[in-house]
C-alpha cells in the first residue's frame, strides 16, 4: 500500500536542450507513465532550479547543453541529494566527458546512447522506479 502511494508520487525531471526531442519525450513519458509527475527543462540551469523546488526521484538528462551541461548540473544535484537516480542520454562524442565525470565520482544509474531506444529508456525508468519503491 505504502509502495503504491509512493509509486504515484514518483517524479521525474527531464532535461533536454533539443526542443523537438524534449517535446516527443515529454509526450511519450506522459503516455507511458501517466502516474509519474514530470518536470521538463531545456537547460541545466533551469533544470537545477526545478530540482531544488521539486526534488524529483529520477533525473533524465542530456549532456551537451548550453549554459550548464548535464554533468555540471548532476554534480550540483548530487550535492543536494546524493541518491538521486540519473539516466544520462549521451552521444558518442560525450562519452569522454562522461568517462571523466565517472572518474570524479558521478555514476549515473543508466547511460543511454543516442539515438534513444524507447524500450531501453522505458526499461531504465522502470528499473529506477522499482529500486526506489524497493528502497522505500
Amino acid at each position: 500500500m505504502k509502495s503504491k502511494t509512493k509509486l504515484t508520487s514518483i517524479s521525474i525531471l527531464l532535461v533536454e536542450d533539443d526542443r523537438d526531442a524534449l517535446n516527443v519525450l515529454t509526450v511519450i513519458l506522459t503516455k507511458k507513465f501517466p502516474d509519474v509527475v514530470l518536470y521538463t527543462s531545456n537547460n541545466g540551469r533551469t533544470g537545477l532550479e526545478l530540482f531544488k523546488t521539486h526534488t524529483p526521484d529520477i533525473v533524465i538528462t542530456d549532456i551537451n547543453m548550453p549554459e550548464m551541461s548535464g554533468v555540471q548540473m548532476a554534480d550540483k544535484i548530487r550535492a543536494i541529494k546524493p541518491d538521486t537516480k540519473f539516466i544520462v542520454l549521451s552521444g558518442d562524442t560525450e562519452r569522454l566527458i562522461l568517462q571523466d565525470s565517472v572518474e570524479k565520482g558521478f555514476e549515473p544509474a543508466h547511460n543511454i546512447v543516442k539515438p534513444v531506444n524507447f524500450g531501453v529508456l522505458f526499461a531504465a525508468i522502470e528499473q529506477c522506479i522499482g529500486e526506489i519503491v524497493h528502497r522505500t
Binding site: K31, L89, K114, P115
Partner: peptide, 30 residues
C-alpha cells in the same frame, strides 16, 4: 566530420524518438 556527427546526432535522436512514438501510440490505441 566531428562537426557533422555532432550536428546530426541531435536530429537523428529526435527522428528516432518520433518514429518509435508511432508504434507506442498505436499500442496505446491513440
Amino acid at each position: 566530420i566531428g562537426n557533422i556527427a555532432h550536428q546530426w546526432r541531435q536530429p537523428l535522436n529526435t527522428l528516432g524518438l518520433m518514429i518509435q512514438q508511432l508504434l507506442l501510440y498505436y499500442d496505446l490505441g491513440e
